[in-house]
Each structure stands twice: as structure tokens, then as C-alpha cells.
Amino acid sequence: MSRDAILGAIRRGLKRGPLPEDQAFALRARLVGHPRHLTPARSIGTHAELVSRFVANVEKEFGTLTRVPDLAGVPGAVADYLAAQNLPTDFAMSPHPELTQDIPWHLRPMLQIRVGRAAASDLVCVQQGYAGIAETGTLMLPSAPERPTTINLLGDTAIVVLRASRIVGPYEDAWAWLRQRVDPVSGGFMPRNVMLVTGPSRSADIESVLELGAHGPRRLHIVLVEDAPAP
């Protein structure tokens, strides 16, 4: 069997048989402890510093951002952004309760919302942001029934509603949140899909010149809801 052949060849190379139990135990302890390595200085700071670093890094990576004081500010921010970009007022939106229940969309009756996954014809999609990572201006978007993956990908314009209290410094802090969940299928913590998204889609394949909007969204806009505790 290929499996045994491969493992056998590796062990021959390492000049040993299967790992002795005491060593396997030490490795399992490393997996359970999943130690962090170096945390870069750029991912350390007060929460206010991390929020402004997140904003700066999003903009560095060609993302755009609007800051609103609370969830009630989201419909206006979305409507104004769409108008400014000459985009239609209908969009697909994730069925996340924070989006469907907590945001007073009726404040902007012009907006037409279809809740669910995205279709290939959708021009605009609205996603709920699980976490923002200040280190590189990265969004963490784990899949779940309330957060379909296609919403991150199919729209020409991706809008993500992110609460400022969900901004962390290093990637590892965002994973630490995700590690707390228990998946009903695997018993582990990992959702089926976790996307770390840094800016809109791009390619430099044509003559090594960067162009935005390759296969994924051409624009990435974040509506940042200032719910963070005062620093």
C-alpha cells in the first residue's frame, strides 16, 4: 500500500522505525499546546493603535473603509458607498443575525437585499466580518451556515461589516477565537473554510504590472462599526 511504502521510506531515511511512544507523546503535547512563535512588533499595541493600524494596512492594500458609530449607521454607509461608486442598490447578503437582525436596513428603503449565498450575477455582496487583523489589514472570514463562502468571492464588489471590537493584532489572536468553537461534524474547531482576505483580488500576470479585480472582487469595502471600548 502506498501509505505504508511512503511512511516506510521516510522512516528508513530517518534511520528509525515508528516513533517511540515517549517521543510521540511529546509531539502530541506540542500539537495540543500549539505554541506561538515570534509576535511581530507591528501587531502589538493598544486597541486604538491596532484599529488605526488595521485601517492603514487595509488602505495600503487598496481596500477602502468607512467608519460608523454604531450598527444603525451601516445602512447609510452602504447606500452612500454604492451611490458613490455608481453601483446598483440591490445586493446579496449573508444570513448572519448581526446583519439580518441587528442592522436597521429599513432606514434606507431603497436598498434591496437578497439573503443567502451569492450568485455569479451578483454585483455586490455584503459579508459579516469575523475578525480584523491589524498586522496586515487582513479580514478573517470563516464559513458557516450564516457566513457563506461565495459571498466573499462572487460579487464584483465585496462589502464587509466589521465591528472594531473584533480587531486584533496578530493572526494568532484571531485563530485563538476560532479555536474556542467546537464543530458538530469533526469535533474539532476548524470550520470547513476559513478565508484570510487582504484587499481586493489582483494579478500581475500580464507583464508584471499589478491590476485589480482578477477573479475575485475588484473592490473591497469595509464598514467599520465603532463599538470598541474606549482605550
Binding site: 492594500e61 451556515p145 470547513r192 473554510n193 487582504t198
Partner: peptide, 24 residues
Amino acid sequence: ATGQDFSVYTTFSTGARRPGDWDG
């Protein structure tokens, strides 16, 4: 690789579509 701080999409896949998922 490209001199970016981080690539645009870094994606972790674990298994197939789960109950209740809309896609995957």
C-alpha cells in the same frame, strides 16, 4: 515571493460541505 505583506487570499479548507452550509 511578491514583496506583499500578505497575499490577498490565504484560505484554509477542512473537509467537505457541513450541514446547513449554503455552498462548498
